[in-house]
Design a protein around this nucleic acid. Structure first.
Lengths: 347, 347
DNA sequence: TTGTAAGCGTTATCAG
DNA sequence: CTGATAACGCTTACAA
């Protein structure tokens, strides 16, 4: 035996290697792998199978994508990966995709609206088969249909004006209604809904509108206001809460509704600053049910979103479209669940 | 004008289209794009440039990957995307990668150890240029060097036994030391460190070992114990805390240290169950500083990890290797920061 | 049933 | 400086 050069790196086996090992053509190997239905002579099939196993051959998805046009890749664009809601959705979607043999390519916008197009183009470059979009949904970044390069997409949580695509989200109206009813039933009469700036974000607008409807439905017994909180408006928020508390003192019990977990955090901080106690001084219910909700004060009541299911549903929608499903854009609104804790309990 | 057939979909322009439009060869276009340094005649350059702009041409990363062998893709494997720590790291890494022109392919293990290999193979299939690994780091899944298909990798937070790769993490020993010193200085004498089951996870072991060292350093003035909490051991945890509290009553102040945010959550729940108050009945410091830490009781003291920087550093390490940096595996330990709040304040 | 050969969109080698 | 041409790994008509 001659001293073999130290094999550099036994590069991944290619289809050609398999073909040679099995003594057949590349085409045959390819057929064995893809069109299992059309029988090949058992003899050859066995030889190919053996060669594949022996060489631990795995097709290169890149080459397949280039040739066949399909990448088994799904592009997932997320407005802000810092947001636990987005992550929870991502998790559900990613799992469903993996289970279906797709890989997820993630693009995080970091709340930078200008990157929306960039993200789509980058992902489209990798020939993703479809998109799951949880984008900003406002302003100029608006993804129009043909920016998608003709690929199917699903919108999560935020709709875009003129887009003809499937849409998956919490049933905001129903969720808000159950929260309001709960508070009103509990004797709360002064309601304050605190939301992040609407800015044309569909989910925020829907929740705010639903809040208005709920209040209207109970007027004049119940009064409601909306406050848009920006995150650097500590004073404004404090003032709004103080005013609410004052109204409560005049005999009406008052409660805050928070539009999402971020706002909940701000409200909790403000309440601490003001020395107000959840449940006792002011009632509280928030959208989103983070793991820490039970641990703040007497426990925060919350509307739990089926985040994981939302993600899974979005992925499923997309996968169906990829399998060729035609038909008009669908709207899937999933129900939230009100979790009652001390902050809105009897008192 | 003849009625043009409704152009089906003006498929992305290819390099051939550009070449034709500019009246040059594909090779020339490719050179114009990649080897800008080697001048081409200004005339041709201008023509190509115009054609590229006119057709809005973008190279196909897939084809580039196939041909040139580089994908500009980074594979990021995360043990559990539900874990905010992982997400924070991911965020930092993803940003650094994007800034360097790389895209991140995400694979979430969902804590399923068996998928470690699967993940690497899937990612390797897409020709990722390198890996960032925040994996389970225990048991059989152990990623060995050649499973990586010869591609560079960086380990985050958890080391693997025999792997010769860069490693980025919190400086666990120093962080633990500062936490312990803080508690001892504050008069706490009975310390209980609660960690998730060690199971050979390097970061957990390092922290536990450092805790032991700290206690030893202060003996016999200070006593310390370790409790491994599994998540379904509510009773055990309660008992451990009750025992600690009892020791506190005998005149020595007692404090809990939590090994990460998950444990912190468990401890907070247990304290609530037992009617114990942070800071007053039992002192507390936890690893990780989640956004809700200031809102639990009098505020939870915490060791804030520079998560985003850890992610960024990991990405940077990897990118350097991709640029050809040689040399031995590096270890980057980043300092944590102790944030003191009410749970370990004077009192 | 199986093999041959022509792409898919790039890059790289090698002549001119 | 520029243009053919051969890879890269795979799929898929088209032949045999």
């Amino acid at each position: 035996m001659s001293a073999a050069a130290p094999a550099p790196r036994p590069a991944r086996a290619t289809i050609a290697d398999v073909a040679k090992a099995a003594g057949v053509s590349k085409a045959t190997v390819s057929r064995f792998l893809n069109h299992r239905e059309r029988l090949l002579s058992p003899d050859i099939a066995a030889r190919v199978e053996a060669a594949v196993a022996q060489l631990a051959y795995t097709p290169s998805p890149m080459a397949q994508a280039l040739s066949h046009g399909r990448s088994r890749l799904i592009g997932l664009i997320v407005a802000d990966i810092t947001n636990p809601y987005s992550v929870a959705v991502l998790r559900g979607a990613e799992k469903a995709c993996q289970d279906a043999g797709y890989l997820v390519m993630l693009f995080n916008l970091g709340n930078d609206i200008d990157r929306e197009r960039e993200a789509i183009n980058a992902l489209a470059g990798y020939q993703v088969d479809g998109f799951i979009l949880n984008t900003l949904g406002r302003g100029a970044g608006l993804v129009d249909a043909d920016a998608l390069h003709g690929k199917p997409a699903v919108l999560v949580d935020r709709r875009h004006a003129g887009m003809h695509t499937d849409f998956v989200s919490l049933d905001n109206a129903a969720a808000m209604k159950s929260a309001c009813s709960h508070l009103v039933d509990g004797g709360y009469r002064e309601l304050l809904y605190i939301t992040e700036p609407l800015k044309g974000v569909s989910s925020r607008r829907e929740r705010t509108a639903a809040f208005g409807d709920c209040v209207t439905a109970h007027e004049p017994r119940v009064a409601g206001e909306v406050y848009e909180s920006t995150g650097d408006d500590g004073d404004g928020l404090d003032a709004a809460l103080r005013a609410l508390h004052k109204r409560a003192k005049r005999g009406k019990r008052a409660a805050v509704l928070a539009g999402n977990a971020v706002v909940t955090l701000r409200v909790a901080a403000a309440m601490a600053r003001l020395g107000l106690r959840f449940g006792e001084d002011i009632g509280f219910v928030g959208f989103d049910d983070p793991e820490w909700a039970p641990l703040i004060g007497p426990g925060l009541s919350a509307i739990a979103q089926p985040t994981e299911e939302i993600g899974r549903t979005a992925a499923t929608c997309l996968l169906e479209r990829l399998r060729g499903l035609e038909g008009p854009a669908r709207q899937l609104l999933l129900p939230g669940e009100l979790v009652v804790r001390g902050s809105s309990g009897g008192g």
